[in-house]
Amino acid sequence: MIPNNFQYHRAASVDDALTLMAKHGMDAKLLAGGHSLLPAMKLRLNQPDVLIDIGHLKELRYIKKEGNELVIGAGATHDDIAHSQMARETFSMLSEAADLIGDVQVRNKGTLGGSLAHADPAADWPAVMIAAHANIEVKGPQGTRTVAADDFFTGFFSTALADNEIITAIRIPEPPKGTNSSYQKFMQPASRFAIVGCAASITMNGRLCSKVSVAFTGLSDAAFRASNIEAALFEKMPTEENITAAVQKAGEGVMAMSDHFASEEYRLHLARVFAKRALMAAAK
């Protein structure tokens, strides 16, 4: 399958890409790893007139510490993150999620920024970024701004990103000492996308949870924070009993998706099961 014809521009830098985007407007799409965009183009689900390639830009591909933040360049591949000791030490759910995306070949090409911008409702990263309280740094003609992951995913394949903006980095605040996290998913066996995925992080103060973060993907039209589960465990001991009680709230008030892989009822069941697994792993 060959995509529709398009004009190709290899951006020399992020700023060059912004200039090209300003020039071509809505006709242009950014190309990073291409592992969401190219399959969509081959199926004619997307037919951009112009592709602006930022996949080779070294300025976007890094993982570093900056003050008390882990900063991941938008062009870092899933494989880069899976093998980053720094990422693992910040939040183990980062490495766990990276390792569960697609397969080796997909992880070698697909990028964090690309996945977040694409905002597939079944993608793994959005839930992890919400649970990590990440801030997404985007650059546009007006300069740079950051959007909290909580506000970034606005709906089905929709984000707070404007048409003339590029995700440049993902900033993850260093969690307090005593924090442990996990990402658990039930995957579609062919695509390996999450039917339901849950990212959870627990910070302990003595025997009690002083901070709990839980986010789901795959359950509804966009990844979201499960504030109800977080509240149910706050200042409680993370025992199996308490976790089991808290996850009963999974998906409350949420319009759960239903498709030929999993009905709404089954997805809600999976949400409880995988939230429990993620929280139990984070409680260890």
């Binding site: 190709y8 190309l31 592992h35 190219l38 399959p39 080779h56 397969d103 070949q105 070698n108 090409k109």
Partner: peptide
């Protein structure tokens, strides 16, 4: 499969395995 599932088209690009059906030739420049 031509849909980045089956891996028959796997090659190495800069030492890493990629599925060459899901990469444009222009992306391999350099």
């Amino acid at each position: 499969c031509d849909t980045s599932n089956c891996g028959a088209c796997t090659i190495l690009v800069d030492g890493k395995a990629v599925k060459s059906c899901t990469m444009l030739a222009v992306q391999a420049h350099g």
